[in-house]
Design a protein around this nucleic acid. Structure first.
Length: 508
DNA sequence: TTGTGTTTTATTGCCTCC
DNA sequence: GGAGGCAATAAAACACAA
């Protein structure tokens, strides 16, 4: 497993070094990077090194990728914050939606006077704090960085879109599934070296420091209005809230079947209301962009409670469908799966992976559910009636994320239903014969191609594997909070996680 | 099939911090 | 001065429309 991926990685590395041509990173690599980025926007050198080794890239490439990724994030935020091109320069950075927290620690944050908060810290805290809270753990999130007192109470840091993005990405990122080596089943990445960050001693700097007091005051006011239990990772301030689903405050959307899917990702998924407010499309630019890139359908596949693009009645529809799905055993994941669990294997030794990747991209580019919707619509004529074809597609949809995959065991009806509901009208209107059929055929081929991979992913995310990973937690080691977090997520160490997870999957 | 636009990757230069 | 990061740029890869 590790070996195979290593081999592929080496091959990739060698080949990429051979030809100086720009070489696209494999989807698996991108996924790994994305997921790691979700966790660490500023990985330490050691992290980079290990990550590079793990995914078969050079540290240079890793650094470059992270750099560009941050730029991308920043740009996305900027675009989102100032869609009309107008930018709030008052703070020098793009304002975080709702929280006023800047997204990135780019150039503007480098200017001395405000260096009180390290964006890296903020980013980590945003996520970690959320994790703790969501998971119900009592770990106090103390910064392992120096001189961060000024921002420790910065709840806004947790409400940043970036945080949400990361949360979502981890939870739903279509790529997560493939990064098992870097993630637990829940999508949390274990620090490569928990000491590195500590040793490094991030100093406060970044965008928080430029956050104006006025902003803070406004944020605080809104928080007070929202009450003590407002979701910091909820919708943007000033952004319309989605209707609260029925019973949202009575009992979180939990069902015994789905819960296991959160086993590993206590941080992300134990947040009961994560499905509601957090999933608003406007919340997270990155989440939006990233997910939309991979698949516009991915969101829907996740089912009502998890569909980020859901609005109002749609949300309720999804809930009902969610419940319906729970009772549905139309599809299962008992398909035989191959032993190819290395994501490198999964992607690099076959054009099929690229097809899958491209298909996602294509879906993203298409930006509508027309083709796919009609496709599924044509296949699933009724609720719960699948002819296998849709099943495979759904499995492929499951491809979107470990969590999705996990949930998928109970949500499989949803994609078709959801897509049908969402796209029926449009589909009827523009059910163009030729073009659509062409696309349909094309997509079918792609779906077929990636089905195997989907099954493999399911294996990796099999509950049994999850449980096993959990048992591997070694809470006895003295760790900084940074490490504690890893323990919480069931992954004492980076390598441990990687090997434990995948190898176990292999052993199965 | 081709042209165009977008995205991704790689490179380079500059800045800041240690 | 070295390391790390950001920004700008170029170029390749890709998707899509004509």
């Amino acid at each position: 497993m590790e070996e195979s991926s290593g081999v592929h990685s080496e091959e990739y590395k060698v080949s990429s070094e051979k030809d100086k041509k720009r070489r696209l990173k494999t989807p698996a690599q991108v996924m790994a990077l994305e997921n790691f980025y979700n966790e660490h926007k500023y990985p330490t050198e050691e992290m980079k090194s290990q990550l590079a080794e793990q995914i078969g890239l050079t540290e240079k490439q890793i650094s470059g990728w992270f750099c560009h990724r941050r730029l991308k994030d920043k740009k996305s935020l900027r675009d989102e914050a100032c869609p009309s091109g107008r930018q709030d320069h008052s703070s020098g950075v793009v304002q975080d939606r709702g929280s006023g927290l800047g997204q990135d620690s780019c150039g503007s944050t480098k200017h001395g006077d405000y260096r009180n908060v390290d964006p890296r810290e903020v980013e980590s805290r945003r996520l970690y704090h959320n994790d703790y809270r969501a998971a119900g753990f009592t770990y106090e999130h103390r910064s392992h960085y120096r001189g961060t007192a000024s921002c420790t109470d910065d709840t806004s840091s947790e409400s940043s879109s970036s945080s949400q993005d990361r949360l979502f990405s981890q939870a739903e990122d279509p790529d997560d599934r493939e990064n098992s080596r870097y993630l637990t089943h829940n999508g949390i990445i274990t620090p490569i070296n928990t000491n590195s960050a500590k040793i490094k001693g991030y100093k406060p700097s970044g965008y928080l420091k430029v956050k104006g007091e006025i902003e803070n005051a406004a944020i605080t006011a809104v928080k007070m209005q929202l009450g003590g239990r407002y979701r910091e990772d909820g919708p943007l301030l000033g952004v319309e809230f989605h209707p609260v689903p029925p019973g949202a405050f009575e009992s979180p959307i939990r069902n015994p079947v789905c819960e296991p899917s959160y086993v590993g990702n206590s941080a992300l998924s134990h947040s009961p209301d994560i499905s509601g407010l957090e999933r608003q499309p406007s919340l997270s630019n990155r989440y939006e962009v990233y997910n939309s890139k991979l698949s516009s359908q991915d969101l829907c596949v996740e089912g009502g409670a998890y569909c980020s693009s859901m609005h109002g009645s749609d949300y309720q529809d999804k809930i009902s469908q969610h419940q319906l799905k729970q009772n549905s055993t139309v599809l299962n994941h008992t398909k035989p799966f191959s032993k190819r669990n290395s994501f490198s294997d999964l992607y690099e030794d076959s054009p099929r992976e690229k097809i899958a990747y491209n298909s996602k991209r294509k879906q993203r580019m298409s930006g509508n559910c027309g083709a796919e919707g009609s496709e599924i619509d044509s296949v699933a004529n009724g609720h719960g009636h699948y002819d296998g074809k849709i099943g495979s597609k759904l499995h492929d949809y499951d491809d979107v994320s470990p969590n999705i995959i996990k949930r998928n065991e109970t949500f499989e009806l949803k994609p078709s239903i959801l897509i049908r509901n969402l796209c029926k009208s449009a589909d009827k209107e523009e059910r163009g014969p030729s073009m659509r059929m062409k696309k349909k055929k094309k997509v079918n081929e792609k779906w077929k191609g990636i089905e195997e991979y989907s099954n493999q992913v399911k294996l990796i995310n099999h509950p049994s594997n999850k449980m096993t990973v959990e048992k591997r937690v070694r809470p006895d080691l003295p760790k900084p909070d940074y490490v504690k977090r890893a323990a919480l997520t069931g992954m004492p160490t980076w390598k441990y996680q990687c090997k434990g997870l995948i190898c176990h999957g292999d052993s199965n």
